[in-house]
Computed example of a mutant assay.
Amino acid sequence: MRRSREGYEIYPVADAIGGISPTAHDNAMQRMIQAGAQPVNAISLVAELQRDWGRARADELRSILRWYFPKLQEIRAQN
């Protein structure tokens, strides 16, 4: 993986960003990948940030995920 000029690794959250059209989004993602970025999705980002599911506030994230997965299936079924 290449790093930014400042030394950061770049992980754009592919399903949390958009463009004015699917084509614009896809082209932007391809430019980032060509520059060395490693796309991730929102769930993988959340899992990385949470790390310890035994923490006191982990249930707050669980409640979001309990909403997210059925909603995602609903959205996919509409497309």
Results as ranks from 00 to 15, higher is better:
1 M>P: 04
1 M>A: 02
2 R>S: 06
2 R>W: 02
3 R>F: 11
6 E>L: 15
6 E>K: 15
6 E>I: 15
7 G>H: 10
8 Y>T: 13
8 Y>M: 15
8 Y>W: 15
9 E>Y: 10
9 E>A: 13
12 P>G: 04
13 V>D: 05
13 V>N: 04
14 A>F: 05
14 A>D: 04
14 A>H: 07
14 A>V: 02
14 A>C: 02
14 A>T: 06
15 D>R: 05
17 I>R: 06
17 I>V: 13
17 I>E: 01
18 G>E: 00
19 G>A: 02
20 I>L: 09
20 I>W: 09
21 S>R: 11
21 S>L: 07
21 S>P: 03
22 P>K: 06
23 T>A: 09
25 H>K: 10
26 D>R: 14
27 N>M: 07
27 N>V: 11
29 M>K: 01
29 M>L: 12
30 Q>M: 03
31 R>Y: 01
32 M>K: 01
33 I>H: 00
33 I>G: 01
34 Q>F: 06
34 Q>W: 12
35 A>E: 05
35 A>F: 06
36 G>Q: 07
36 G>S: 07
36 G>N: 07
38 Q>N: 06
38 Q>V: 12
39 P>R: 05
40 V>W: 03
40 V>D: 00
40 V>Q: 06
41 N>W: 07
41 N>P: 01
41 N>S: 11
42 A>C: 14
43 I>C: 03
43 I>H: 04
44 S>A: 11
44 S>N: 03
44 S>W: 04
44 S>G: 06
45 L>A: 15
46 V>A: 14
47 A>P: 01
48 E>G: 13
49 L>I: 10
51 R>A: 14
51 R>C: 07
51 R>S: 11
51 R>Y: 09
51 R>K: 15
54 G>R: 05
55 R>D: 02
56 A>I: 08
57 R>F: 13
57 R>S: 15
57 R>H: 14
58 A>V: 03
59 D>Y: 13
59 D>G: 08
59 D>K: 14
59 D>R: 13
60 E>D: 15
60 E>M: 14
60 E>G: 13
60 E>H: 14
61 L>K: 09
61 L>F: 10
61 L>P: 03
62 R>E: 12
63 S>T: 12
64 I>W: 08
64 I>N: 07
68 Y>C: 00
68 Y>V: 00
68 Y>L: 01
68 Y>N: 00
69 F>P: 00
69 F>E: 03
71 K>Q: 09
71 K>S: 03
71 K>W: 11
71 K>E: 05
72 L>V: 13
72 L>R: 14
72 L>P: 06
73 Q>K: 15
75 I>A: 13
75 I>Q: 10
76 R>I: 12
76 R>Q: 15
77 A>N: 04
77 A>V: 01
77 A>K: 09
78 Q>W: 04
79 N>P: 02
79 N>G: 08
79 N>T: 08
